[in-house]
Amino acid sequence: MTAAEASAKEAKEKEYDDIPGTFVFDADRSRRGYHLNMFCMSLMKAENRRAFKENEASYLDRFALTPEQREAILTRDYNRMLELGGNIYFTAKLGATDGHSFQHIAAIMTGSTQEDYAKMMLAGGRSIEGNRSKSGRDAAAKPAPRRTAAKSAKTRAKSSPGPTAKRAKKAGSKRG
């Protein structure tokens, strides 16, 4: 099998890539994201959290991250982290280090504010309608209120939620 064939096979097999707004943490992402997730895991220790906060860039030198992963961490682009192999249970530790609740991080990933996101949850959550499939009947619909993961890197960088995340006030319980 040529590399192209292998790659085509891989793409074909990933039926779940059809789910909008979702990055499935599969074996490929797990392999690529190993160091990113281990960085997040290191934040379980108070001394590491301190060192990271003191100088983020130099702390990240301890981990064999790709430049893209590094950038995503520094700009707190949580969707990009997931795309590059991060797992939500790990990246949430970065959010907690910043003093953010889980719901706050979820809101960021959806391009919403924590307040609006919490309102949506209280009203029953995000509907499946329009959010089921990229290719099916729902193909034209996008996960409101934000576009799906299929955006180009350029667009993504523009709408990076990083700075918003940094500016946002600490709200509610860290463990929300």
Partner: peptide, 15 residues
């Protein structure tokens, strides 16, 4: 039960 906490589709619930 139903929940998604990752990515732009976070918040999905299907009762």
């Amino acid at each position: 039960m139903s929940h998604q906490i990752s990515g732009p589709r976070a918040g999905l619930i299907k009762s």
